[in-house]
Design a protein around this nucleic acid. Structure first.
Lengths: 237, 237
DNA sequence: TCGGTATAGTGATCATACCAGTTCTCGTCA
DNA sequence: TGACGAGAACTGGTATGATCACTATACCGA
């Protein structure tokens, strides 16, 4: 245990900072390529492992994309790419304990309740048309369970998109995909599709009426149905 | 020339999966140590770079902690560690465009509105006592701006904690720290402290009265003060 | 001009050596 | 006997050089 707090940073961390600086400063813009590893190790006066570790870290952050045989390219950072970065860790977290899954389900309920309120306040005729399109598209998928579930997720994301905030969109996408990976909270199984579609239609109606309270209540009923039905656990596997 | 779309995964990815499997399967529990790199390279029949890359990736995910001279230790995954993982990328995202910052501010507003509603519904006498303690602690910090801001963030996190969901706590902590890093949306400056404290007290009162509507309204007034005061930019929204 | 191939460039992987920390061992000394 | 400290042994960090696998490009032939 060191008595002083001086942390000796790894050499690759310094390289990381310099590379990150080149990106954020705009010296290397989105879509452009970084110098090759061999050039960088000479320019920075370090060995190749330091360069590679730093670049792997940047790639893990989603800042750059590395492909075999090509030079690394700078990628655009978005709320989506940022959320996607934690996808794997989130899976580990959810697998670690069922409590975590409960917390996520609660967070999703909280999120959807607020989002549908916001949607009821903000929805334009165009937004409503897109919601109805999403509902129609979902109806088309009856009989194909995976496709129906995908359409279901898209419907909920469509509500989120009305906010116009890409952060909400990214969060919605992530939470739904994580829940789907655990085959829970999706309240869909063969024979049940009509119930889901009816509830979705009801939600659209309340949004169209700009009835925030009613929309939230309809969403809560829709989401809470899973709690009622997943107790006896229907044999959907 | 690949005729199919099979992407040749990197060797370190295979190692990553095997190591991750050893962790998630419980073969190596939290706090325990992984085998050394040299042992692993022999066991897996790969070179040291493959092992190191995989372990660096695990460390970036927050699954393990690597210290010079010691063996890597398995860390507990929490919502907090998961959010912290994107801290750096979030900074890049917020620096990239002021629009992203606006989106984050909106997200924070959405979050706090719902959280304070939830708090008004759930708060126990003990929760209220902690909130009042947090307020008193903040009052003690008048005159020390950084400490006052830290206390301010703790007050808001305390409201979030009433939900009992660690995900919310982690999200609250992250959003506040990101906003603070951009010195915005904190509505605090010397001479202004009393206004903040008064608004916080009002929020506590509404929570104590289990008045969700009133608490939300008080929170909105509190948060919107920043929009009025930060910059001459006319807030048409 | 077009198309395919040879070539150079790039990342991926390995082997080896050595440096820089930590942990453990064991002998020394009070 | 027991506390302590020097040093061995172990572990991660870094450097170097070589080689493999993949990509892009320049060149050459039809």
């Amino acid at each position: 245990m060191n008595s002083d707090h001086i942390v000796r940073r790894k050499l690759s961390d310094e390289v990381f900072d310099r590379l990150a600086g080149m990106i954020t400063s705009g010296e290397i813009g989105t879509g452009e390529t970084l110098p090759s590893e061999r050039v960088l190790m000479e320019r920075f006066g370090v060995g190749r492992p330091a360069i590679r570790e730093a670049m792997q870290a940047l790639a893990n952050l989603g800042l750059i994309q590395i492909n075999h045989g090509e030079r690394a390219k700078v990628r655009e950072i978005t709320a989506r790419s940022l959320v996607r970065q934690v996808d794997l860790a989130a899976q580990f977290l959810l697998n670690a304990s069922p409590t975590n899954l409960d917390h996520l389900k609660q967070a999703r309920r909280f999120f959807e309740r607020g989002m549908v309120r916001s949607a009821a306040e903000l929805a334009t005729p165009d937004d409503l048309a897109q919601l109805r399109d999403a509902l129609a598209a979902q109806r088309q998928q009856i009989g194909d369970v995976p496709a129906f579930i995908r359409a279901d997720m898209l419907f909920h994301r469509q509500i989120t998109r009305i906010s116009g905030n890409p952060i909400f969109d990214a969060v919605s996408e992530a939470m739904l995909s994580w829940l789907q990976a655990h085959r829970t909270d999706l309240l869909i199984w063969p024979g049940n599709e009509e119930v889901t579609l009816r509830e979705h239609a009801e939600i659209i109606d309340r949004i169209a009426a700009h009835d925030a309270e009613g929309a939230e209540a309809a969403m809560v009923r829709h989401l809470d149905r899973s709690a009622d039905l997943y107790g006896p656990r229907p044999s959907t596997g």
